[in-house]
């Protein structure tokens, strides 16, 4: 922000950054969503999380969102996010945070582990904004699911209506099971 420094704005940004760190956001998310300097964010991160932030690049591929189990999680998150942004005028990042909270709540209510991290959720919204991923309506259940941007909607069936052959066999705790 090039405008004069405002203490009030800064405190708001710090508050937002703290909330993001508590939700498990990576440093790159904080850098992109606040105007605080890298050094301050780093200090803040250590103070809030009690450890240094993870290093390395963010996952950059859209593939993860299209694999069976992550796709279902992402679709739930994105449906909630779209719902929130449609009914109320929220800033993008606030909508992401709220939607993420509601998503984790819902997943926990289903006795599963939220495998979508806040960083991934944020990434997903960026992918959708840039038309690298899209939402397609399932021709069977009518729900909207994360897909390639130009999926053929006439024949599309979601991962829950037509699970792939080997889906749901994972023995890891908190996964999606079919039976």
């Amino acid at each position: 922000m090039a405008t004069a420094k405002s203490v009030l704005n800064e405190s708001r940004e710090i508050e937002r950054a703290v909330a993001l760190i508590q939700l498990g956001a990576r440093l790159q998310v904080l850098e992109s969503e606040t105007n605080l300097s890298y050094e301050r964010l780093l200090r803040l991160y250590k103070e809030v999380a009690g450890r240094s932030p993870s290093k390395g690049q963010l996952p950059f591929s859209t593939d993860w969102f299209l694999t069976w189990q992550p796709n279902i999680h992402s679709s739930l998150f994105l449906n909630i996010y779209e719902h929130l942004t449609k009914v109320s005028a929220l800033e993008d990042i606030d909508a992401i945070m709220k939607a993420y909270k509601l998503y984790s709540e819902q997943i926990t209510a289903c006795a599963m582990e939220p495998i979508l991290s806040l960083t991934r959720a944020w990434r997903l919204v960026k992918f959708i904004d840039n038309n690298m991923l899209g939402m397609t309506r399932c021709s069977k259940c009518g729900g909207h699911f994360v897909t390639e941007p130009y999926e053929n909607s006439r024949h599309f069936e979601c991962g829950l209506c037509s699970p792939p052959a080997r889906a749901g066999k994972s023995t890891a705790a908190g996964g999606i099971l079919l039976h």
């Binding site: 209510a109 289903c110 259940c141 699970p163 749901g168 039976h179």
Partner: peptide, 12 residues
């Protein structure tokens, strides 16, 4: 249906 796990249908 193909899926008959309670938690999964709830998620759906």
């Amino acid at each position: 249906r193909k899926v008959d796990n309670d938690a999964t249908t709830k998620l759906h």
